Amino acid sequence: MAAGGDHGSPDSYRSPLASRYASPEMCFVFSDRYKFRTWRQLWLWLAEAEQTLGLPITDEQIQEMKSNLENIDFKMAAEEEKRLRHDVMAHVHTFGHCCPKAAGIIHLGATSCYVGDNTDLIILRNALDLLLPKLARVISRLADFAKERASLPTLGFTHFQPAQLTTVGKRCCLWIQDLCMDLQNLKRVRDDLRFRGVKGTTGTQASFLQLFEGDDHKVEQLDKMVTEKAGFKRAFIITGQTYTRKVDIEVLSVLASLGASVHKICTDIRLLANLKEMEEPFEKQQIGSSAMPYKRNPMRSERCCSLARHLMTLVMDPLQTASVQWFERTLDDSANRRICLAEAFLTADTILNTLQNISEGLVVYPKVIERRIRQELPFMATENIIMAMVKAGGSRQDCHEKIRVLSQQAASVVKQEGGDNDLIERIQVDAYFSPIHSQLDHLLDPSSFTGRASQQVQRFLEEEVYPLLKPYESVMKVKAELCL
């Protein structure tokens, strides 16, 4: 049975990233139509530049190519590739079939990587351009969430054990800070992308030097003109047959890092959902379990974690691919890159769409948070109580021993009897502590235990987050809708 299948058929496997999760716009960027249309555009740009620099290419040939950029006979191309065992030459023939007058000058002087690699770089750039505003929107939604809850005390956790208090907004800023680093890295790697350009079979530009009869300047002009037509500021000066596969490492490393950030955020949300302090959106008709109707599973956060793990592992592909590119190139890269580049971007696209949807509907339960604080705060307040007693004339050592005994009794009630923490009640009825009984409410005010959390939130948002989001103001209103 021949390899390949009808990918629109229910009898043929289709990647869930495309069929179930990723956005239509990201799927289109990695589609065959987008790819092969870009090949034709690159052939047109090459012909236009070659004509401008004096090669015998007519206006009629150029116009014929322009008129057929979208006229792609995919069936013919597939048949040609089956016959020739070469995808680029299959599309040269297919393009030439609908451009008979231009057929002889299509791909003039070029090698397969002229269309293959340059198209990949265009796709990487455009895919990054799709991700950047999506990530900015996630940051914006979380920034709104953090600002609104900047002063809401909550129990902090280290080692997932109760620690000092923080605020809900401050905790959210930990998430935002990681995503801001990801946004900066995505922008950097996007701006650092260079075009492969017009380089020939081993990167020496020998074929173009021959076409222009040894004119170095025209060869350099050709490279520059096509690079500018493709919208790049610069091209690699040095290439082998391909652009260095280190570029793929750079791009997928940034995406993998984004995956790590999203995994951490969504894990926190899942843990908070278990504590009943916070939940992701839950639709009115949504079913959490087929057997347990009360369940409210954090399905979206779980999906993000599941896909983020996949995204983090994909960076190993370009690392290994770059390491086995012998001399000017081997074909070890080809099949692998067809999979890992598309999957990385479709996965990143999915987790950003999902995280935006989550961040637009996060639900906080202040009463649950308050109750958990009441359970733990008495123990945390013991040092403040000791200091207040010393100020009232008591002995630190005597007070410490009193607190120690009462704390152990209260802990026994919590752990052995399943009761509430009654340390404060014990202190309130103990005559030894009568000098500070009137101060206990103040000493137990949760806001006095959150330090500068709310001020940190305000400063972080104003100095770091809002300036970073400013270039994306025009796209901030787009909502994230999930079908599944």
Rank of each mutant, 00 (worst) to 15 (best):
A3F: 11
G5E: 15
G5K: 15
H7D: 09
R14G: 15
A22C: 15
A22T: 14
S23C: 08
E25G: 13
M26Q: 05
M26N: 01
F28T: 10
F30V: 12
K35Y: 06
W39C: 08
E48M: 09
A49F: 00
E50L: 08
G54S: 10
P56Y: 12
D59E: 09
Q61C: 12
E64D: 14
L69Y: 08
I72D: 09
A77M: 15
A77W: 07
A78L: 09
L84N: 10
R85A: 01
A90Q: 02
H91E: 09
H93M: 11
T94E: 14
H97R: 11
C99V: 13
A103G: 11
G104P: 14
I105A: 12
T111H: 00
C113Y: 00
D117K: 00
T119A: 14
T119Q: 06
L121I: 10
L121R: 01
I123N: 05
L131Q: 13
L131C: 13
K134M: 06
L135F: 13
R137S: 15
S140T: 15
A143N: 09
E148V: 12
A150L: 06
A150T: 07
L155A: 01
F157V: 02
H159P: 00
A163P: 00
L165E: 00
T166C: 10
R171F: 03
R171E: 02
C172H: 06
I176N: 06
Q177H: 13
Q177R: 04
L179G: 06
F195I: 10
G203Q: 01
T204H: 06
Q205N: 14
Q205A: 15
G214Y: 12
D215C: 09
D215Y: 10
A230L: 03
K233Y: 07
K233W: 08
G240S: 08
Q241A: 00
K246S: 04
V247R: 06
D248W: 03
I249K: 05
S253Q: 11
S253F: 12
V254I: 12
A256F: 02
S257T: 09
L258R: 02
S261M: 02
S261V: 05
R270M: 01
A273M: 14
E277T: 04
S290D: 01
S290H: 01
A291F: 04
M292F: 04
Y294W: 04
K295R: 00
P298E: 02
M299N: 09
R303W: 00
S306Y: 04
S306G: 08
L307G: 15
R309M: 11
H310K: 12
V324Q: 07
T330A: 13
T330M: 02
D332L: 03
I339W: 01
I339D: 03
C340K: 03
E343V: 05
A344W: 01
Q356R: 06
L362G: 06
V364T: 05
Y365W: 15
Y365I: 06
P366K: 08
P366G: 05
V368E: 03
I373T: 07
R374C: 06
Q375D: 05
L377S: 03
P378W: 01
M380S: 02
M380D: 00
A381P: 02
T382Y: 05
T382G: 06
E383H: 02
R396Q: 01
R396D: 02
H400P: 02
E401A: 15
L406W: 07
S407K: 01
V414Y: 04
V414P: 06
Q416P: 03
N421I: 08
D422P: 12
I427Q: 05
Y432M: 08
P435M: 06
P435H: 08
Q439K: 11
D441E: 14
D441S: 08
D441N: 10
L443W: 03
S448I: 15
R452Q: 09
A453T: 11
Q458S: 14
E462G: 11
Y466W: 15
L469N: 05
K470W: 13
E481F: 08
